[in-house]
Computed example of a mutant assay.
Amino acid sequence: MKKVALFGGSFDPIHTDHVNIIKSCKENLKFDEVWVIPTYLNPFKHLSYSSVNQRLEMINIAIRNLNYVKVDKYEVSKTERSYTYDTICYFKNKYHDIEFTFIMGSDQLEKFEKWDHFDELIKAIDFKIFKRDDNYDKNILNKYNLKLFDFENNHLSSTEIRNLGRLNLQINEVNEYVNNNLMYLYERLESKMTQERYFHSLNVGRFALELGMLNNCNLNKVFMAGTLHDIAKEWDDKCMIDYLKKYDPSLLNEPDKVWHSYVGAFHLKHDWYINDDDVISAVYKHTVADKNMSVIDMIVFCADKLSYERNYLEIEKYRAIVKSDLELGFKELLKRQYEFAIIKNGENKIGSKLKDSYNWWIKND
Score class of each variant (00 low, 15 high):
residue 322 V to F: 07
residue 22 I to Y: 07
residue 227 T to R: 11
residue 231 I to K: 06
residue 13 P to M: 06
residue 324 S to E: 01
residue 337 Q to H: 13
residue 158 S to C: 03
residue 100 F to L: 07
residue 212 G to F: 01
residue 51 S to L: 00
residue 275 N to A: 10
residue 64 R to P: 01
residue 317 K to Y: 15
residue 131 K to M: 11
residue 354 L to N: 06
residue 354 L to H: 07
residue 137 D to S: 11
residue 39 T to W: 04
residue 276 D to H: 05
residue 80 E to I: 11
residue 197 R to G: 12
residue 247 Y to T: 11
residue 195 Q to E: 10
residue 118 F to C: 09
residue 206 R to K: 04
residue 102 F to S: 10
residue 105 G to N: 08
residue 237 D to S: 12
residue 160 E to Q: 08
residue 214 L to H: 01
residue 327 E to L: 10
residue 167 L to K: 10
residue 312 Y to F: 15
residue 238 K to E: 14
residue 60 N to Q: 09
residue 93 N to L: 05
residue 103 I to E: 11
residue 45 K to Y: 09
residue 313 L to N: 12
residue 164 L to P: 00
residue 312 Y to E: 15
residue 207 F to H: 06
residue 245 K to F: 02
residue 234 E to I: 02
residue 289 A to L: 03
residue 210 E to L: 05
residue 145 N to D: 13
residue 149 F to V: 00
residue 55 R to G: 03
residue 13 P to N: 06
residue 325 D to G: 10
residue 114 K to S: 13
residue 272 W to E: 06
residue 152 E to W: 01
residue 257 K to N: 14
residue 268 L to S: 06
residue 122 I to A: 12
residue 32 D to E: 08
residue 312 Y to C: 13
residue 166 R to G: 00
residue 192 K to Y: 14
residue 271 D to T: 11
residue 250 S to V: 12
residue 25 C to F: 02
residue 302 C to I: 00
residue 78 K to W: 10
residue 168 N to E: 06
residue 305 K to Q: 12
residue 113 E to Q: 14
residue 189 L to K: 13
residue 161 I to V: 07
residue 67 N to S: 12
residue 16 T to Q: 15
residue 1 M to E: 03
residue 220 N to K: 14
residue 88 I to D: 13
residue 258 V to D: 12
residue 179 N to D: 07
residue 298 M to S: 05
residue 75 E to P: 07
residue 337 Q to L: 13
